[in-house]
């Protein structure tokens, strides 16, 4: 089952597994509840990330990255997962792949970028998923904010690092 507009944001096979657990293919109660739980979890995690970034608490940021990586991976939200993995590594003062050491300053600035990017990826995939679950409520209810909020859909996909 393809998710319209998912492109490479969602890993088909993984998400399919979740969908297969739905008892009713029209209602999709189970997968919908999981996905919406994830939205809530992501929002709160991003909120914690913001405050810990202020407090420059790298260790907690890494843990938060790992935490959200786990659930986004379970849902197959590839791009969010990738960014969370970066947050996990940067928080450990490692580079994006976790191989080279970074200075605290570099780690913090990379964290800022990665968190922003993670939020963007999340927003994109959230839109796709909401459309899939026929929910048109506005995404602006989220507590966190991103600098480029009002930019149209296509442009908001930052595929290359800035």
């Amino acid at each position: 089952m393809k998710i319209p507009g998912a492109a490479d944001r969602i890993d088909d096979a993984t998400f399919e597994q979740i969908l297969e657990m739905d008892d009713d293919e029209e209602e999709r109660d189970f997968s919908k509840s999981i996905v919406y739980d994830f939205f809530t979890q992501a929002e709160s995690t991003f909120g914690k990330m913001d405050s810990n970034l202020q407090a420059k608490d790298l260790k907690t940021l890494s843990e938060l990255g790992h935490f959200l990586k786990g659930s986004s991976a379970t849902l197959g939200l590839t791009k969010v997962k990738d960014e969370c993995e970066k947050i996990q590594h940067y928080g450990q003062k490692k580079d994006a792949t976790g191989t080279k050491d970074l200075s605290s300053d570099d780690a913090l600035s990379s964290l800022q970028t990665a968190i922003d990017q993670a939020k963007k990826e999340f927003k994109d995939v959230e839109k796709v998923l909401k459309r899939f679950y026929h929910d048109d409520s506005s995404p602006t209810r989220h507590q966190f904010c991103t600098p480029n909020q009002e930019i149209p859909h296509h442009d908001s996909i930052h595929l290359l690092p800035h």
Binding site: Q17, I18, E20, M21, I34, D37, F67, G70, S71, L75
Partner: peptide, 16 residues
């Protein structure tokens, strides 16, 4: 498992 989302999915998977 500490992540509730993963808990839910795993429980469901195991049930299936």
């Amino acid at each position: 498992e500490d992540n509730q989302i993963n808990q839910k999915v795993m429980v469901k998977t195991l049930e299936s």
